[in-house]
């Protein structure tokens, strides 16, 4: 539980941080809330020689609206997400998700940028970002770019981020007013990562499901956008038979690990159960 030696840097601008990271090379890591990174360091599963702390960097915090987009600064904490009025109004699924992450102490420090950049399949926000079709804005010494959450994750701790890259903000096109949403997470206890979880956003029109998007957490080495399941739900009556088919489609794309949360077949099935429950809750919340 004692980390290896490291140097600590505290830049004040995105540019400076990106340059530092590029200069310091492979052994440097950005530090946000530290609630994934420092834990890995204490276990010596990560031994970075340099930490580049982003908490002194200007302009990475807060939520704002830009046209149809909601823009969330990478260093916005889970706690801030839970208490942000604009998000509560337009993107309540974020609050529902953040409330199921860890515990209040972790949420005071843990950031949304760290959560999506981390690349741990156990993180909850990545699937929600895929469900919402969010885009991550990335700064590097070479300039800025945007990547869709659905294209960002390649494997466990393997993402689109390269040396010198910093996620600066997350951009989400707000779903229509009256949309239904739910993040259904099965976990063993407070502070635990998901056994399986499902994020659902849907809209109803005349009692039927007009549009739907589903994504899954911790049932593969990346978050999973369940495209097929989403298609099955869209245009349907959300009846039992549809849910059966959507759950089966979702279960089919999972490839969970067997661990202390349970064997793989159980976790795959739980992805389906979480999906059904998320859809039913989203449906009940949606205004037709």
């Amino acid at each position: 539980m004692i980390p290896g030696a490291f140097d600590y840097h505290r830049p004040t601008s995105v540019n400076e941080a990106a340059l530092l990271l590029r200069q310091l090379g492979e052994d440097a890591r950005p530090l946000a809330g530290g609630h994934s990174l420092i834990a890995l360091m204490k276990l010596r599963l990560a031994m970075p020689e340099h930490l580049v702390d982003l908490s002194g960097v200007d302009g990475l915090k807060g939520v704002r609206r830009e046209g149809d987009d909601l823009v969330i600064g990478a260093m916005t904490t889970q706690h801030d997400i839970i208490h942000d009025a604009m998000l509560a109004e337009s993107l309540p699924i974020l609050r529902e998700t953040a409330n199921q992450i860890a515990d209040p102490q972790v949420r005071y420090r843990g950031t949304i940028g760290g959560n999506v950049a981390n690349g741990d399949p156990g993180n909850d926000m990545p699937a929600v970002m895929q469900c919402l079709d969010a885009r991550f804005r990335i700064a590097s010494p070479d300039g800025e770019r945007e990547i869709s959450a659905r294209d960002f994750y390649h494997g466990a701790f393997d993402t689109e981020l390269h040396r010198g890259d910093i996620v600066t903000e997350i951009r989400i096109k707000a779903p229509p007013r009256g949309h239904g949403y739910a993040y259904e997470k099965m976990k063993r206890k407070t502070g635990d990562y998901a056994t399986a979880a499902a994020a659902v956003i849907l809209t109803l029109e005349g009692g039927r499901c007009a549009r739907a998007s589903v994504a899954l957490t911790n049932v593969a080495d990346t978050p999973l956008w369940a495209e097929e399941a989403s298609k099955i739900l869209a245009g349907s009556d959300l009846g039992k038979e549809t849910l059966d088919r959507a759950a089966a489609a979702a279960e089919a794309i999972t490839n969970p690990a067997s661990d202390l949360h349970g064997p793989a077949e159980f976790r795959a099935k739980m992805a389906g159960v979480m999906l059904r429950r998320a859809v039913m809750r989203a449906q009940a919340r949606a205004k037709a």
Partner: peptide
Amino acid sequence: IRYDEHGNVLGASFMDFFLPTAVE
């Protein structure tokens, strides 16, 4: 406290070992 067939001890941390909080 579980062991796998090779005698590796599994779950010897509070991430895995079930210690209920006030919530549970």
